[in-house]
Design a protein around this nucleic acid. Structure first.
Lengths: 389, 389
DNA sequence: CTGAAAGCGCTAACAA
DNA sequence: TTGTTAGCGCTTTCAG
């Protein structure tokens, strides 16, 4: 029986200093760590190794390594600990840290379709903001058929510290559920309508006003709208903004049809429906660039030339829309900045006022959730022009 | 002193069954858990709660919840455990699990620039593959100025089970370093040249042959190349493939210039350099679509019409290149599939042959690393045509 | 400023 | 098939 109890029979690729530390410590401990043996991968140096190498107690080493508490240890100790870290190639074990503190330094990000060019820059903004705090994003692409609730539950099990959600519908059960459970959530780009969960969005109403004003400025009077899916705040608000902007000019919509999705196909299909209605229009404001492109394709198919016969304005200023033919006039929104701000907002929530003052949970923020609204700008290109005389 | 030692003075939002379990257990345990008190967020039910609710031991509950070991437990117990899970809204604590097992069910993904439309579908493939195993991707966008080595080290600290790397240069210190440390790594799209680390790539040589054969088939004889950055395998191999394909037709390159990046700007700049050389060409094969578009812009600026005066073929079939003017003839590569396969390869490595047979580390796979090469296909559109007579 | 002690929630090894 | 025991590596009291 005793023969099985040897200390770490094999050691591979472990710096010498480290294995020394291990051996010395072996004696002072309860029975040697047998669990150490057949691990999936050798584990690196631990805090105990650092402590021994630096000749201090674990606790002290831990303090020396935490920027927050670093100044509670003597300069000399800090130096020795740093040295040990370097010579043993120590990396903190976040799993252990997470288990102990309940914080994983990870956040969950839910996007509806990374393939939609709107989201990559947002993701970028999110990651860059997280990186400044040494945190990471666990990204999940919620494809059709996968429940965002299930994915979020898995992420909660993983211990994410909070969520950034770009999949919100206007009535979004997931957001409500997470919020009710006291989980920190920030919405980005789209938002639910509870008003209880913070969000970072573009000013969709203003965006549509820019588009409408532009066409009206050209002299267009008969303007139609290809609306986004009404279950998203973007679709809903842009449509409202469109109508509102027309109203300000004392105009009525020449027509408006909802698209089933933000896609080229849906845009083409919607334009076909609009055309079938036999309404007259000289300008079209689309809820998004993909829809605008679909519309252009459908018009072309019908022998209508953009912008000669009909002007079209998109929304988002996706990459390459300056290269399509005709180059698309569109409303540029701040994707990267939206992502960045959303992450910052979440970080603030995690460490900030709400962190300990209240216990989180529903109603934790009686003032109402923070909402950040970013300003879009119009980018005029070739798909819009004055109407034919 | 004693007054401070009360057990959990406040309990909020905890299901009744749960708090009951807690109280009962309190007695049988060592001193009551004081650490429980001011946590960042209330923790949910634990395995111990489940065990008590189901009237079995923790270990048994654990077994019942692990699909691997579930059949080692009686059907009745399994049922009771499932019931407990549902009624207590239990979610496994992966941090604890990770600490114990050394596996986090997370993998790290490094991309050079998510904003480049090549990567989102790859990411998608990766995530979908991981999702089948309930795993997640921690994605980091390695922007200029952030060291991929540092990011990877942070991710290692987070305990990722492996890496998928899309940032490889031909001589990639990161890949070498990780591999040397016995970390599981798979490369996608680009690969290093050590040949020791598995990769999933597109057949770049074949891709260029398709492009060249297409132009030659049209009757082009003077064909130039706009090469990708030579430090990437894609840039290097596509250039080699281009030359090789020309050679097979007994032709010589009309010229070849390297681009400094895969971008529209770099493509335009390279085309300008090529034009300045005063070489004659009727066809151009670009290493990537963005470069091709940059080239088209630059040619247009110089009064050269595509495809009337010069034909251009791109590479990748990025979204929207069918909409640019002229619609781009290009080589389509399987982005989504590359990502999916890369993830599967990594998963196999993690659970498979290498998992326990060898100890990982350098030389763990004496047969040589697996490489998966996917076939590209040519997509003919409007940017290529027979040369003028 | 430093150290001792305890335990976060889980699972592997062993024993019954 | 089930239970016992121990400990993964960290941080948090609390005591000196």
């Amino acid at each position: 029986v005793l023969s099985r109890r040897r200390v770490c029979p094999v050691t591979i690729h472990v710096p010498e200093a480290l294995s020394l530390a291990r051996m010395t410590s072996g004696a002072t401990r309860t029975p040697p760590r047998k669990t150490r043996e057949a691990k999936p991968r050798e584990r690196g140096a631990t805090l105990r190794d650092i402590a021994e190498h630096a000749g201090v107690h674990q606790t002290t080493a831990s303090r020396a390594l935490d920027p927050q508490r670093r100044h509670h240890v003597s300069a000399e100790v800090a130096r020795r600990v740093d040295l040990a870290v370097r010579s043993l190639d120590y990396r903190i074990n976040r799993a252990a840290s997470a288990l102990r503190t309940g914080r994983s330094r990870t956040i969950g990000v839910l996007v509806p379709d990374i393939t939609n060019p709107v989201f990559p820059p947002m993701l970028r903004g999110i990651e860059h903001a997280l990186a400044t705090e040494g945190m990471f994003a666990m990204v999940a692409d919620i494809e059709a058929g996968r429940s965002s609730i299930e994915v979020a539950d898995l992420m909660r099990a993983q211990g994410v510290d909070g969520f950034i959600i770009a999949t919100s519908q206007r009535d979004e059960p997931l957001v409500a559920r997470l919020h009710a459970a006291g989980v920190k959530v920030v919405q980005v780009n789209r938002r639910d309508e509870s008003g209880e969960v913070p969000a970072v969005v573009s000013d969709d109403i203003l965006g549509m006003r820019l588009a409408v004003d532009h066409l009206v400025g050209f002299g267009h009077r008969r303007i139609a709208h290809l609306a986004g899916p009404p279950q998203f705040s973007t679709g809903h608000l842009r449509k409202a903004g469109f109508l509102q902007a027309l109203h300000a000019h004392r105009l009525k919509a020449a027509g408006s049809v909802d698209c089933s999705a933000y896609s080229v196909a849906a845009g083409a299909e919607a334009m076909a429906r609009l055309a079938r209605r036999d309404v007259r229009f000289t300008g079209v404001v689309a809820a998004n660039d993909l829809i605008a492109i679909g519309a252009i394709l459908e018009l072309r198919r019908r022998g209508v030339v953009v912008p000669h016969d009909v002007s079209i304005v998109g929304h988002n200023d996706m990459p390459l829309v300056d290269m399509v033919s005709p180059a698309l006039t569109t409303v540029r929104i701040q994707h990267y900045e939206m992502g960045r701000r959303a992450a910052r907002l979440l970080l603030d929530e995690l460490s900030g006022v709400n962190g300990l003052g209240r216990l989180g949970g529903p109603g934790a923020d009686p003032v109402g959730a923070a909402t950040i609204v970013l300003r879009p700008e119009l980018v005029v290109r070739d798909s819009s022009a004055p109407p034919r005389a």
